[in-house]
């Protein structure tokens, strides 16, 4: 008997999808209608995320890639992000359209369904972030990409600063799934003055050059 699992994103964005697809049980919006300049909020919750914990992280190589040596550093490749959290923990994030093969070793835990992931892209995203986050994401000493662990909209988050150019940029946020509604409402409320709009994953891919 074939079982078709339906997986639901914790994020609900009000907009008119122009292109959607079903992938691995997720209903994914690739593109919303309209072509506004942004800023944009993009639901990334359907992409696979793995928590990696090991006493010897330097010997763990997700997808043959090295985990960065210092907390806060990010390794970025096509369709792959790996962020170092602390001495024994890292997060790997896959953006490939096909589902990645899960490594059968004790270091890996699939946390895709446990967390919410959104991206903020376009102009004014760092101004928007300043309204919701006391941390300095524009610190001159830090060059994107880098990872910060701290409160965003009062919610403990992993804040992935992926791109920063003048006032434009790309920030990805991950936090516990239960905060999704409040987090999205907070971002939309804070971004209303710049006309923030929902966008699909195609926009995120184009920002990342994938």
């Amino acid at each position: 008997m074939t079982v078709n699992l339906e997986r639901r994103s914790p994020v609900t964005l009000k907009g008119r999808p122009a292109k959607t697809e079903i992938r691995d049980g997720w209903r994914i919006v690739s593109r919303y209608s309209g072509n506004a300049q942004g800023p944009h909020i993009i639901d990334l919750s359907h992409f696979s995320r793995w928590d990696i914990q090991d006493d010897a992280l330097e010997q763990v190589e997700p997808y043959g890639s090295k985990i960065p040596a210092k907390p806060g550093q990010i390794f970025m490749d096509i369709n792959l992000l790996i962020g170092r959290l602390n001495r024994t923990q890292a997060i790997a994030w896959h953006f490939a359209p096909e589902k990645p093969v899960f490594p059968q070793t004790k270091a890996f835990t699939d946390i895709t369904d446990a967390a919410v992931a959104i991206a903020l892209t376009g102009p004014w995203v760092f101004d928007l972030a300043e309204k919701l986050c006391a941390l300095d994401l524009s610190e001159p000493d830090k060059n994107p990409p880098f990872l910060v662990q701290g409160p965003f909209s009062h919610v403990p988050c992993h804040i992935w600063v992926l791109h920063h150019e003048d006032s434009r940029g790309c920030i990805a946020l991950t936090c516990s799934r239960g905060y999704a509604g409040d987090m999205v409402n907070g971002v939309l409320e804070a971004g209303a003055q710049w006309g923030i709009l929902p966008e699909g994953e195609d926009r995120f891919r184009s920002w990342m050059g994938w």
């Binding site: 907390p71 602390n86 662990q149 701290g150």
Partner: peptide, 8 residues
Amino acid sequence: FHRDGCGS
């Protein structure tokens, strides 16, 4: 304890 951050 870094409650809102790294959990250390």
